[in-house]
């Protein structure tokens, strides 16, 4: 099973949407507990009559999807598949608050309509008038990987040739406040680029959207190829985890989901001493923050690294020399419950 990445577009706290090359000017944020996306101008990507109803995440999602298709030269994909851990949080919160503030009476319907997890996938279909397969996954740290697996199966089943797959998650003030109370984030602000060295508990919150044009066929636009996607739910111990990951094969480089939280990062340290010993390792969450679908940002990075055959220094965790990059493994876990691995290969 494989899928060629023939186009991608990501909106993130980095300048990923506009930059031609990978991380030309890494975004540094001093004294932060969260980082937010650098939003592009949406006009030109979204019809104003449709945009007026869209919350920030819907705009970011639709905009990156449309740009991705444009870059890949696809007008009507055979399938649109999205993954989101938390869905359209802003609209959900807005409607929930309106219930209490108005005593359940005379509520504006728009935020309710726009609150479902499939809003972005549906809005893309609506913008393209695309009647094809359309699906949305919403499962914590598996959301994007589930969407990817669905897409790769569709290609294998020969039910589709070109598929748009994407991930989206937004950070809102209420989401930050609540998850902060849950102890997810560092209490003392940090510089994002020094995240891995931080000894305090928690990570920094983030957000982002990333869309990929996947195809059964290699083209001159192909950046890289996805050759495997795996998810592991609550592995019993590190041995089981190692066995599962090694079954994918030995990569030339790993991109790890290290997020600066000593407890969660212990798993990565373990793997780096074990099966990833002597494999150059990178990390990415200092660039995008922690969120449910951050692995989609990592996939965008991996695709760029393979195409450019260049590793941005800002992502490096060690000095192990990097040779030719044929296979990059992205390994991430969310709270030691949702573990996932994506193998990206050169075309």
């Amino acid at each position: 099973m494989e899928a060629f990445i023939n186009g991608l577009s990501a909106i993130s706290p980095q300048n990923t949407f506009a930059e031609e090359k990978l991380l030309q000017e890494p975004g540094e944020y001093c004294d932060v507990r969260f980082i937010k996306c650098l939003e592009p101008q949406y006009s030109g990507f979204i019809d104003p009559m449709a945009a007026r109803r869209m919350s920030r995440i819907i705009k970011m999602g639709v905009c990156s999807a449309i740009k991705c298709l444009k870059d890949a030269g696809i007008r009507n994909p055979d399938a649109i598949i999205t993954g989101t851990g938390m869905g359209c949080v802003e609209d959900t919160g807005k409607f929930l608050i309106s219930i209490y503030e108005n005593d359940e009476k005379l509520l504006n319907p728009t935020p309710f309509i726009q609150s479902t997890h499939n809003t972005v996938g549906a809005s893309i279909a609506l913008a393209l008038k695309c009647n094809n397969y359309n699906n949305t996954y919403g499962h914590r740290g598996f959301s994007f990987e589930s969407a990817l697996l669905d897409a790769m199966m569709l290609l294998q089943e020969k039910q589709a040739c070109d598929i748009l797959v994407g991930a989206l998650d937004e950070l809102t003030p209420d989401l930050f406040t609540i998850t902060d109370r849950l102890g997810f984030w560092k209490k003392v602000p940090v510089n994002n680029l020094c995240l891995k060295d931080s000894k305090s508990r928690g990570s920094i919150a983030g957000e982002g959207t990333a869309f990929f044009a996947l195809s059964r066929h290699k083209s001159e636009k192909s950046l890289a190829r996805i050759s495997s996607v795996m998810t592991f739910f609550r592995p019993e111990n590190i041995t089981e985890l190692q066995n599962r990951i090694t079954s994918i094969g030995k990569p030339d480089l790993v991109i790890l989901g290290i997020n600066g939280d000593p407890q969660g990062d212990e798993i990565y340290s373990h793997l780096r001493k074990g099966i990833f010993n002597d494999i150059p390792a990178l990390y990415y969450k200092h660039l995008c923050g922690e969120y449910d679908t951050s692995s989609a940002f990592a996939l965008a990075m991996a695709s760029g690294i393979i195409r450019e055959q260049r590793v941005p220094d800002i992502m490096k965790l060690d000095d192990i020399p990097v040779g030719e990059l044929r296979n990059i493994l992205i390994y991430n876990h969310l709270r030691n419950v949702n573990h996932s691995a994506i193998l990206v290969t050169s075309c």
């Binding site: 479902t116 997890h117 359309n134 996954y137 499962h139 914590r140 598996f142 589930s146 739910f233």
Partner: peptide, 26 residues
Amino acid sequence: HDMGDSTEKIAEACGIRDYVTTISTA
């Protein structure tokens, strides 16, 4: 709150681990 919670609770109650996910298309 999130969609994955109920699925993971079901998975744990039933002892399912090989593949777990949640779909949310209204």
